[in-house]
Design a protein around this nucleic acid. Sequence first.
DNA 1: GCACAGGATGGAAACGTTTCCAACGTGAGG
DNA 2: CCTCACGTTGGAAACGTTTCCATCCTGTGC
Lengths: 349, 349
Amino acid sequence: MATTIKDVAAAAGVGIATVSRVLSGTGSVSAATRERVLAAARALDYRPSAVGRSLKTRRTGGIGLVVPDVTDPFCAELVAGVLACARSLGEHVLLDAAHGDPEREAAIVDRLVEQRVDGIIALPAGDVAAWESAVRVGCAVVFADRALPALPAVPAVLADDAGGVRALTEYLTGLGHRRVAYLGAAGPGQAPGVRERAFRDTLAGLGLPVHEDLVVAARPERDSAYAAAAGLLQRGTDATAVLAAGHLLGEAAVLVARELDIRVPADVSIAMVDDVPWAELCDPPLTAVARPGHDMGYRACEAVLRDSARRGAHRPVPLPTELVIRGSCGPPRGARGGRRASGDPRGGR
Amino acid sequence: MATTIKDVAAAAGVGIATVSRVLSGTGSVSAATRERVLAAARALDYRPSAVGRSLKTRRTGGIGLVVPDVTDPFCAELVAGVLACARSLGEHVLLDAAHGDPEREAAIVDRLVEQRVDGIIALPAGDVAAWESAVRVGCAVVFADRALPALPAVPAVLADDAGGVRALTEYLTGLGHRRVAYLGAAGPGQAPGVRERAFRDTLAGLGLPVHEDLVVAARPERDSAYAAAAGLLQRGTDATAVLAAGHLLGEAAVLVARELDIRVPADVSIAMVDDVPWAELCDPPLTAVARPGHDMGYRACEAVLRDSARRGAHRPVPLPTELVIRGSCGPPRGARGGRRASGDPRGGR
DNA sequence: GCACAGGATGGAAACGTTTCCAACGTGAGG
DNA sequence: CCTCACGTTGGAAACGTTTCCATCCTGTGC
C-alpha cells in the first residue's frame, strides 16, 4: 500500500542503498543517478518512514512534554517555548497533561519511554517512582518550573520564585502594608513551598511579624482557591493586602473581592505571582510577578537534548522574574486618613 | 545498552515469541512460563520498544495535532479536548504550532506524515497543497474549528459560529442598538468569513441596515486587533455597540475603551465571540458567545481515529454555541431619553 | 497400545530504514 | 600494459517487534 524505499529503488532502477544515500544526502552519488532517484521519489509520492529510520538509528527525534494542564496560561507559555526550541533543533514534541495526578503521570511517562523519545521535559506532579525508573532505563529527563526534592539528580530549569515573592512582599510592605495575607500556602501536613518560605523570610528580614491567620492554605485549583479567598476576605477584611501565590489564586481573590464589593486597591490591595494575559485586562489591572514561561520551556528543551547527548552539565541558576506594577496595589486603607495601619479595625465600608 | 525482548527471552530461558506472547497477552502460555517471563522482564527493567512494534504493526498509536498557537485560550481548550480523547483511546499526541504560517504548517504536516501518525487534526492555516498531499498518501485528516473551502473532502468538526453571531446580533439589536460595529471583518480583497456573513444576514433579516463604516477589518492578532479597535472607537464614538469577532478582538476593544475612558456599557456595549476565562474577570464581565472548544477537540479526535479505520462517515452537524450574557451590554446611550445610564436592565455593575 | 487433537513453544520472516563492506568500473601514474 | 586509488553502486545485515508456521509434547478416546 504505502510506497517504500524499495519501490523507489525499483522505479529508479537502482539499489535501495543508493536511494537512501540520495535522500539522506550522505555518501556520494553521481548527479545523473541522483536526478533519477529524486524523480522516482517524487513520482511515487514517497515519504520516508521515520519509524524505519528510528529503528535503525535509535533516535526518534521526539521529545516528551508532561504538563499539569495545557489550558493553564503559564503552562501554555512554557509549552510554546518548548515547541519553539524543538522546532529550531529539528525535533517534534509529544505532549500530555497529567492534571496533577501522579498515577496518570506515571502512565504518561511509561508511554513516553516506550515511544523512545530522546528526552522528557516535565512539570512533575510527584510520582517519584516513575521518574526514577525513566532515568534508570537511560531516558534524559529535565524538570521545568518545579523540581522533585526526592530526585536531586534530575536537572531542573527553574524561575527565581523566591526572588519574585520577595520583591512583591517588599513592594507591598513598602506601600505601608503591615497585614499582608498570603493566599496559597501549603496545607497543615505539608512542607511550605519556596514561595511561602520567601514570603515568611522576607517579612522576618524586614523585622515584621507574620500573621499566621493571614497565611491561608489553598491548592492551585479553582475551587480550592475560591474557597480560600472567600474565607480570607469574608472574615472582616483585616488584611490590607493579598499576595496570591499563583494566577488561579489571584483570579479567585479578584472574583471574591468583586462579589463582596471590596474595592481594589482602596479597600484591599491584590497582587499575584504569574503575569498572565488577563492581569492587564481586569480592573484595575493586576500587579504581578512575571515568570519567564516561554524562556523556561526553551531552555528546558535545550537542556534535555544536551543531556541526551550525555553531557550532564547542570546549570542550576534560576531565571529572573520581574515585578510588573499595575494599578491593583496602593497604600493600606486609612493610611492617609490619620489611622495608622497598626490598630486598623475592621471599619471597612 | 538498552534491554530488548531478546535479553528477556534469554534471561527467562524461553524464545522471543513466547516473551512477546506473554507481554502482549495474546496466544497461550503456561502459567509457569508466564511468571518466569514476567519476572525476567521486571528484573531487567524491560520496556518494549514502540518503534519496533510500530514497524511491524504499521500503527504508531500517535495522532498529530496542528494548531495556530498553543497560548491562545481557545486553542488550548481544544488541545485539552484532543488530549482527553486520545488518552481514553490509548493514543498519544504530537503537537505543533503553525502560527498562521502556511509554510510552517506544510513543514509540520510533512513531518507528521513521516512520523506515520495514525491521523492528523488541524486548525488549518491554509496550505492546501500540504494537506492534499497528506491525504493522498493515505493519512487520515480532520479539520477542527475551521475548514478549507478548497478541500471539501476533508471532514471538519465545526462550531455553529453563524448561529452564535446571529444570537449575539439579535441580542444587541434587541437591546435597542441600531449602530452595531463589527470588529474583525475580512480585508478588502478577501471573502468575508462565516461570522461576518452571519452578522450581515442577521441585520438584513431584521430589516436593519448594515453600516459599512462600522464593519472594520482586522486579523485575529493583537496588533492588528488593537489598531482596528482604536480606529473604530476613536473616531467620535458613533457606534453604540461593538461585536468583536474573536477574543483577541474583544480584548483589544476592552483595552481601547478603557484607554479612551469610554464607559462600558454606559457609553458603548461590547460583546465578543469566544468565551475565554478572562471574560468573567474583566470589569464589567464580558458578554460572549461560548464555543465548545474542548468538545470540538474531543470529537475531532474521535473522528480522525474512526476515519483512520477507513470508514469515512462525515457528520457535518455544527456544534451548538451558547450566548453567555454578562454585564458588558446595555441599551444604547440616550435610549431612555436623557443620558441615564443607571437603571439598565442588565446592570453592568 | 495407537492415532489424533490441541496446548505450548521456538524459529524465522517481515516491517522500512541505515550503513558496512565488497565489487565494479575507470582514469591516472608508473 | 599493469596496478592502484577512488568514486559509484548494490547486497546484506542489523535495529526490535509481531506473527505465521512447524514442532514437540501430553492427554484422551478408541
